[in-house]
């Protein structure tokens, strides 16, 4: 991975992070967190940690689903 690629993939992660800060809707926030993860995973793969990439590719969606369940329960209670 050379310099232009580092800049491009880092731009994906940073745009996702800034967008997660700026959005107000909870679905849009969760989507932006997913974008941030999409920018990070090429760096993990480039170092050769493929097993780590597989593991967190499966953990992050499960985390998102659990967060969705928690969000929905709070709206039901209030």
């Amino acid at each position: 991975m050379d310099d232009p690629l580092v800049v491009l993939f880092a731009a994906v992660a940073i745009i996702g992070a800034v967008s997660a800060h700026l959005q107000h809707d909870r679905f849009n926030k969760l989507i932006a967190v997913g974008i941030t993860f999409g920018g990070i995973v090429p760096f993990i793969v480039d170092r050769g940690y493929l097993d780590v990439a597989i593991a967190i590719s499966l953990i992050i969606p499960i985390t998102t689903i659990i967060m969705l369940l928690i969000c929905r329960r709070e709206t039901c209670d209030t």
Binding site: L58, I60, P61, I65
Partner: peptide, 9 residues
């Protein structure tokens, strides 16, 4: 994984 995430959202 990301498709499942989009599906859930």
């Amino acid at each position: 994984g990301s498709t499942l995430e989009a599906n859930a959202i």
